[in-house]
C-alpha cells in the first residue's frame, strides 16, 4: 500500500510532464525530444526563485509556466515551423523534427551544464512528514501531487469543455479535416506546442520540490515522458494520466522490492515492450 501511494504520488508529476509532450506530439505533430530540457530548466528556475527570492515553488508556477509557454512558442515559430512547411510527407517531417530537437536537446543540455555545472541540486521545501492512511509521506510530494492533479483537471476542462479546446482536439484527430471546418491549424499547432511547454515546465517546477536534479537529466525524463505518451496513446489526455500513474507505481515497485539499480532497466524494458506490442497505446488507439 505504501509503495502504491508513493508510486501514485510520483506518477502525478510524471503525468504533467507527459501531458506536455502529448500535446506537442499529438497536436503539433512534433516529437519534441528537447521536452526534457524544458523540465530541467523549470527545475533550475524554481530553485533560483526559491533560494534567491524566497518565492514558494507553487507561486513560482505563475512565473515559470508563462516563461515555458513563451519559450516553447518561440522555438516552434522560429525553428520547427520552417520544417513543417518544407516537409513533403509526414514521415520526412518526423525524422527532421527528431534530428532538430535532438540538436536542441544537446544544445540546451550543454548550455545548462555550462551555467550550473554537473553537480546535484535540491532545496528544502515543505520537507515535513504528512500522515496518510497510517503511513507518513513527505508533505512536498503530496502537495506536488495535488498541484499536478489540479493542473491536469484544468487542462482536461479546457480541452473537453471549451470551444478552443475542442479545436485543439480536432487538429489532433485530423489536421486536414480541421482546416475544412475553418480551424486555423497553424495557430492551433503553435498554441498547443507552447501550452505543452508550459505544462511540462509546471511538472519540472513541482518535481524540483522533492527530487534531486542536475543539468543532464533531461534525456532520461524525456524517455519517461515518451513511454507514458506512447503507453497512453498519442494525444490522449486521460490515457497519459493513467499511464503516468502506472509508470510511477512500476518504478517504485522495482526500486523497493527488486533492486534500486534496476529502476532504469525497468523503465527502458517497459518502453521497448510497449513499442513492440502496443505502439498504438494501451487503451485502444482512438486518438492520434
Amino acid at each position: 500500500m505504501e509503495i502504491l501511494i508513493t508510486g501514485v504520488l510520483l506518477g502525478g508529476t510524471y503525468a504533467l510532464i507527459a501531458l506536455g509532450l502529448t500535446l506537442q506530439y499529438g497536436v503539433a505533430r512534433i516529437m519534441n525530444l528537447a521536452n526534457g530540457e524544458t523540465l530541467v530548466a523549470a527545475c533550475f528556475g524554481a530553485w533560483l526563485l526559491f533560494t534567491a527570492a524566497q518565492i514558494s515553488p507553487l507561486w513560482g508556477l505563475l512565473i515559470i509556466a508563462p516563461l515555458g509557454f513563451v519559450a516553447n512558442g518561440l522555438i516552434y515559430a522560429g525553428l520547427l515551423r520552417p520544417l513543417v512547411r518544407r516537409a513533403v510527407t509526414q514521415g520526412a517531417l518526423e525524422v527532421d523534427a527528431i534530428l532538430a530537437t535532438f540538436g536542441l536537446l544537446f544544445l540546451f543540455e550543454g548550455a545548462m551544464h555550462l551555467i550550473f555545472g554537473g553537480s546535484f541540486f535540491n532545496y528544502q521545501f515543505l520537507a515535513v512528514p504528512f500522515e496518510l492512511l497510517g503511513e507518513s509521506y513527505a508533505l512536498n510530494r503530496v502537495v506536488a501531487f495535488a498541484a499536478a492533479a489540479i493542473i491536469s483537471v484544468l487542462l482536461a476542462f479546457f480541452l473537453y469543455r471549451t470551444r478552443f479546446g475542442t479545436a485543439i482536439r480536432a487538429v489532433a484527430v485530423d489536421p486536414d479535416a480541421a482546416r475544412l471546418v475553418a480551424i486555423d491549424v497553424e495557430f492551433v499547432a503553435l498554441f498547443a506546442f507552447a501550452l505543452g511547454g508550459a505544462i511540462t515546465a509546471c511538472g519540472g517546477a513541482l518535481l524540483s520540490t522533492f527530487y534531486t536534479f542536475e543539468a543532464s537529466m533531461g534525456g532520461i525524463f524525456m524517455i519517461k515522458a515518451l513511454i507514458i505518451v506512447i503507453m497512453g496513446g498519442v494525444g490522449d489526455v486521460r490515457g497519459a494520466v493513467l499511464a503516468a500513474l502506472i509508470l510511477g507505481v512500476i518504478e517504485t515497485l522495482v526500486a523497493s522490492l527488486v533492486d534500486p539499480g534496476l529502476t532504469l532497466t525497468a523503465t527502458y524494458g517497459l518502453f521497448v515492450t510497449i513499442l513492440l506490442f502496443r505502439p498504438q497505446g494501451l487503451f485502444g488507439g482512438a486518438a492520434g
Binding site: I98, L264, T265
Partner: peptide
C-alpha cells in the same frame, strides 16, 4: 518490423539504453 518512422528512431535509442543497463 512492427514500428515505423519516428518510432523506429525512438525504439533503437531505447533498445541501446536497455542493452547498456542490462
Amino acid at each position: 518490423l512492427r514500428v515505423s518512422g519516428a518510432y523506429f528512431v525512438i525504439f533503437t535509442l531505447g533498445l541501446a539504453e536497455l542493452t547498456r543497463q542490462v
